[in-house]
């Protein structure tokens, strides 16, 4: 790995410099993760006196449990919907801002601030708008003949969390798409215009393909976001309900472990989640390696 051409000759100083970071990492990251892996192979008796090593029993039980399989499906639906919805809206807005010459800074400011809103607050905002008794959205939907009650209807609950989660993530995607669009050379656009391509055709044949690195990167980041950063949002809107309809993996691992106190199963769920993050990170870094020299 790269260092400077000349380096400081001190022998102990680098360890002292690394000590704080490594201490926090080992105590609060590595050790607990190792504990999770360990307990995922164990069963604790109800009084916590004895633990037995049971190999993969927690895992086999987990994957035969309908509740967990349901959670996997819901997570997939949720992640894919949020990713598609927020990315396509963000792309549309980014392309529009990129066409505007004068007021693009104002528009950008007005569009990016939701990044700073906590997921749980996002949840409360949308929960308020869609509140079946006083919310404005159900009132308007009633006018269209739709009876909205996400406390009863699982599909409506899913729609609600997807919309809320996408709303927050638009700002992030928007900024990266704008950055991506600005790096597309203007000369290519001009050349295509001279070749007779109209604005829409130019976008799909020239600009969009050149954006593919950004798009791919955002795809991974958004899946990551939907799977791991939306705990607060779910907690504030649906609590995973109704009837598990929005019980995504991160919510379930919390509910089972903290509220249900099922240590073995929760640990196994943690390990599965870790594997998912590792896979996503690996994909992301394989892609980044091509861009940046580490």
């Amino acid at each position: 790995m790269q260092t400077k051409r000349t380096i400081f000759p001190n022998k102990l100083l680098p360890y002292a410099l690394l000590a704080p970071q490594l201490a926090v990492t080992l105590i609060f990251f590595i050790w607990p993760a190792a504990q999770a892996v360990k307990s995922s192979f164990e069963r604790e008796d109800p009084f916590g006196f004895r633990t037995t090593f049971i190999w993969f029993e927690n895992y086999t039980r987990l994957f035969s449990e309908p509740g967990y399989l349901n959670s996997l499906t819901k997570t997939a639906i949720f992640a894919v919907s949020v990713t598609l919805l927020s990315m396509s809206l963000a792309l549309l807005l980014a392309v529009a801002v990129n066409r505007v010459l004068k007021s693009n800074r104002t528009y950008t400011t007005l569009l990016v601030w939701p990044y700073a809103v906590a997921p749980v607050v996002v949840g409360i905002l949308w929960w308020f708008m869609f509140n079946p008794t006083i919310g404005i959205a159900p009132y308007m939907l009633r006018g269209l003949g739709i009876d909205w009650n996400h406390r009863v209807d699982g599909n409506q609950a899913m729609i609600l969390v997807v919309i809320a989660a996408s709303w927050k993530q638009i700002s992030y995607n928007f900024l990266f798409f704008v950055a991506g669009l600005q790096s597309v050379p203007q000369s290519l656009n001009e050349a295509a215009a001279i070749d007779g391509a109209g604005p829409f055709k130019r976008f799909w044949t020239i600009v969009f393909p050149l954006l593919s690195p950004t798009t791919f990167f955002l795809l991974i980041v958004n899946i990551n976001y939907a799977m791991f950063d939306t705990f607060g949002l779910i907690d504030a809107t649906t609590n995973g309900g109704p009837n598990q309809a929005t019980n995504i993996l991160v919510y379930k691992v919390y509910a089972d472990g903290f509220l249900g106190l099922n240590i073995g199963s929760s640990a196994a769920q943690s390990v599965v989640l870790m594997l998912i993050v590792i896979a996503l990170t690996a994909i992301q870094f394989r892609y980044i390696e091509r861009r940046v020299q580490y």
């Binding site: 260092t3 022998k11 490594l22 590595i30 691992v253 472990g257 929760s266 993050v277």
Partner: peptide, 29 residues
């Protein structure tokens, strides 16, 4: 970056691993 010392790469990887362990996946321990 500015020092060379034994286990430098190991330290780098230990730090790197934290990327893969968000709070949400290791809550209870």
């Amino acid at each position: 970056v500015f020092f060379k010392f034994p286990f430098r790469l190991l330290a780098f990887w230990i730090i790197f691993i934290t990327l893969m362990l968000p709070v949400e996946v290791r809550i209870i321990p």
